[in-house]
Design a binder for these strands. Structure first.
Lengths: 153, 153
DNA sequence: AAATACCCTACCTCCGTGGTAGGATATAAC
DNA sequence: GTTATATCCTACCACGGAGGTAGGGTATTT
């Protein structure tokens, strides 16, 4: 699998925040109830988004979270990166020579590393698809079909 | 991480086979020695490639493996798929409702699933980048720079 | 018959994932 | 100023898959 549940839950959380008006903060509990997700785990997820500067928070009663920027200005590669860490197709793309998987991605034998070429292309494909999608796209998509009888499935 | 060592080792194995002339089979031991990979584990990896019809094999002395098709006719999405299984960005894309990660990818509340839109785009980006790369591309790349003094790094 | 090499299955260890538990701190309402 | 709300922080834990190892069986050549 490519992404873990942190990405799934975190993106859903961001979409929920994007659906709210940013006047008053939204509590995690409201989101956990709406999406059916464990609150304590969501706290860990949202902490990553906060540290990445994607959401802001207010403590205390009537506190909660809201988007740090308008949804149109948030590209999804930022979000996924904050949640999952570096987006790398292979172990040795992220750690420097401390990995388990045997890596010949250095041209030690004086020849080009074929797998590195492949993984680089894959990485480009992923990042491009994430960069060209904004949170606003997802929010709008989640609004489509809402309250609309199933005319076109 | 996106792909496991099976993909890394398996792709390297395919490149090695692509570098050989297909007249005589190449033994796994030769590949394991050349790449510094554990032989017993490579056997499991190559079994997936064989079952997918990407390589053929001959048993006994002077046996070994060779490409079932010319490298130009082998797209890398087939290879990676054989090694890793279905290429899915999220758990619920592959198993049907038997997964752990809570999934709202069914429009249960009558609204579009925003994360599904995102993961579908990512999946498309990955598969496209794999489809447009052939094994021949990787073999050629691995030949470039070979035996060539480092003029352009 | 001996060496080579594919083929198959069972087993094992380590570590990340996906949480839970329990508290500390800040704010608002009364 | 106490109570309720809600963010914050850290430690802990069980499970499963990754990444192998081990050991044998079978086919083919020399």
């Amino acid at each position: 699998m490519i992404f873990s549940s942190k990405a799934e839950y975190g993106v859903r959380l961001m979409v929920e925040l994007g659906r709210q008006s940013p006047e008053h903060p939204t509590s995690l509990k409201a989101i956990a109830d709406a999406e059916g997700l464990p609150l304590a785990y969501l706290e860990q997820v949202v902490a990553r988004l906060r540290k990445a500067g994607l959401v802001m928070s207010a403590r205390g009663a009537h506190g909660g979270y809201w988007l740090a920027r308008p949804a149109e200005k948030i590209a999804m590669d930022e979000v996924v990166q904050a949640l999952e860490g570096a987006i790398a197709p292979m172990e040795c793309f992220v750690h420097d020579h401390t990995e388990r998987v045997l890596c010949s991605h250095e041209p030690d034998a004086g020849r080009g590393c074929a797998t590195k070429l492949l993984w680089t292309r894959v990485q480009g494909g992923i990042i491009r698809s994430l960069q060209t999608t904004t949170l606003a796209d997802l929010v709008e998509f989640s609004r489509r079909g809402e309250r609309v009888p199933a005319a076109t499935v």
